[in-house]
Computed example of a mutant assay.
Amino acid sequence: MNGKNYRQQATAAEAQILDSLQGRLVERARARELVDVAYRVVDSPVGALLLASTDAGLVRVAFESEGHDRILEVLSERLSPRILRDKSSLDGAVRQLDEYFAGQRHGFDLPVDLQLSTEFRRQVQLELGHIDYGRTLSYAQLAQQIGKPKAVRAVGSACATNPIPIVLPCHRVLRTDGSLGGYLGGLEAKSELLKLENPDFASGAATLF
């Protein structure tokens, strides 16, 4: 066995040991009810996504561009410092996201926890889940849909601060002129999600559909 192969095997063995230790740590922490927020990081066509959950449900989906370490700090400050990485958690969310990106799922069936949002923003963010797959609304249309037609700017802010993007699809909300507007994960990610759902979508000056 040459030195390179030995190092590769040693690295793989070390990774298995670390995974085993991590698993035991998670089991013990959960048994003692010491975990308030569990998280894991998964790959996706729009980059690595950090998924975090509480006992109430999915509390955060974060794009890599947001800085996962910073997101964990925010969760620690606003929710609880008892946060633990758990590869075995969030299996339902991971499966549904995989199905979504494969074009096999058009809606999510997951419990969500919107405690990071204010009452008004929760109203807007929950309404996002009622925008059909492959369709878009303007911020003004969304404001009208929740019965507050003058709150267009506040609706835009609620979309911009949506803590559970993709699952609560704020990417389906555009400006009135059809331009993308803002997006937490960046405009490239927003455009990719819209194209995934509707290949006829063209970013820039799209017609609302």
Rank of each mutant, 00 (worst) to 15 (best):
L126T: 04
G134D: 11
V94P: 01
I131L: 10
L126C: 01
Y100M: 03
G182F: 08
F120K: 10
N162H: 05
V94Q: 09
L116C: 01
A102S: 14
Q96R: 01
L116F: 03
L97C: 05
C170G: 15
K148G: 05
Q104W: 11
L126K: 08
A158P: 08
R105Q: 14
G185P: 06
T136A: 06
N162L: 00
Q115C: 14
I166G: 09
R172I: 00
R122C: 14
T161V: 00
Q115G: 15
G156N: 11
V124P: 07
L116T: 09
A140Y: 03
L110R: 02
E99P: 00
Y100N: 02
R95K: 12
C170W: 01
G92R: 15
L114N: 05
R175C: 08
D113L: 07
L180E: 12
A93F: 00
P169T: 07
V94N: 01
A143T: 05
A151Q: 14
G107K: 14
L116Q: 08
V112F: 03
E127A: 15
I164L: 07
K148W: 12
P149S: 12
L137Y: 06
A154K: 14
L137Q: 11
A158W: 04
G134T: 12
V173I: 07
V94W: 00
G107H: 13
L110Q: 04
A143E: 02
R95C: 00
S117G: 04
Y100W: 04
C170Y: 03
L116I: 06
T118W: 09
S179R: 12
L114A: 07
Q123R: 15
G103H: 13
G186N: 08
A93W: 00
H106Y: 05
L187W: 02
D132R: 15
Y100Q: 05
S117Q: 10
L128Q: 11
L126R: 12
G156V: 06
G185K: 10
R105I: 07
E119F: 15
T136W: 01
I146C: 07
Q115L: 09
S138V: 13
G92P: 06
G181D: 03
P165I: 09
L114D: 08
T161P: 01
E188M: 11
R172G: 10
F101M: 02
Y133P: 09
Y183R: 12
A160N: 06
S138N: 02
T118K: 14
V94R: 06
Q104Y: 14
G103Q: 11
D113M: 11
A160G: 06
L97H: 00
L180V: 12
V124F: 06
E99Q: 13
T161Y: 04
L110M: 08
I131N: 10
Y100E: 01
G107A: 14
G186A: 09
L187T: 12
Q96A: 06
R121H: 15
P163T: 06
S138K: 03
H130P: 08
V94S: 03
L174K: 00
K150R: 15
G129L: 02
T136I: 01
Q141D: 15
T136M: 00
S117C: 13
A143H: 04
L174A: 01
L174T: 00
K148Q: 15
V112G: 11
A154T: 09
H130N: 15
D109F: 13
C159V: 13
Y183W: 13
G156S: 08
R105V: 07
Q144H: 03
A158R: 04
L168S: 08
G129V: 05
L116V: 07
S138T: 14
Q145W: 03
